[in-house]
Amino acid sequence: MKFISKFFVLVASIIVVLGVGAFLLPNLTKNKHSELAMAADNVNPLVKIEDVYASTNAKPIRHFIGGGGEDEYTYHLVTYNAQGQSRTLAFDSQWKLKPNKFLKISTKGQNVESWGKVDRETVPSGIRQELMMS
């Protein structure tokens, strides 16, 4: 009987630790550009996929040759979600971004799921103003 109660206490403790971690981890990984932050957000069920917007006026922070011999560029972009909350994301592109354009980026925390150019008019006006000032 003592073993069973200790087992249930251990299981309950693990569930509490995982639950608290799932709630706290998104705040700890926000604006972090490491593989660990991306992996943590990717497996966390509390981190939802959301669309954010960015301006392409940033310069690449790194240029390298990819595994297939293609040019790759790493960017750190300030993005804004529909509520106007900002987040810095890092992602790789196989070409240089053209300046003065806008991107719509689908993210799961620090993971960039997909991204593409959007017309200026599709970016919400409040977000567009923030992007033009940054």
Score class of each variant (00 low, 15 high):
37 A>R: 03
76 H>E: 11
98 K>W: 13
100 N>Q: 15
44 N>A: 06
125 S>P: 07
115 W>F: 14
54 A>M: 02
132 M>C: 10
86 S>E: 10
53 Y>A: 06
112 V>Q: 01
105 I>L: 03
96 K>T: 15
31 N>P: 00
26 P>W: 13
134 S>P: 00
46 L>S: 02
126 G>H: 09
72 E>A: 01
83 Q>R: 12
75 Y>S: 01
10 L>H: 00
63 H>K: 14
39 A>L: 12
92 D>P: 10
86 S>K: 14
90 A>K: 01
59 K>P: 00
27 N>K: 13
76 H>K: 08
110 Q>W: 06
117 K>E: 08
1 M>K: 14
8 F>Q: 08
38 M>L: 02
98 K>I: 15
120 R>P: 05
121 E>Y: 15
104 K>L: 03
47 V>G: 07
43 V>Y: 08
119 D>L: 10
49 I>H: 15
119 D>Y: 04
88 T>P: 04
50 E>Q: 05
12 A>T: 10
92 D>M: 14
10 L>N: 04
125 S>R: 09
67 G>E: 05
90 A>E: 10
55 S>W: 14
68 G>D: 15
91 F>S: 05
86 S>Y: 13
50 E>M: 01
48 K>D: 10
59 K>Q: 07
80 Y>S: 00
121 E>I: 13
97 L>H: 13
128 R>Y: 13
42 N>P: 00
40 A>K: 08
107 T>C: 03
67 G>L: 07
79 T>G: 05
69 G>H: 09
89 L>Q: 08
114 S>C: 06
114 S>R: 15
10 L>Q: 00
25 L>T: 09
10 L>W: 08
130 E>L: 06
13 S>H: 04
78 V>H: 01
55 S>H: 10
7 F>K: 13
64 F>S: 03
98 K>F: 11
116 G>V: 03
80 Y>Q: 02
39 A>Y: 08
99 P>D: 06
83 Q>N: 08
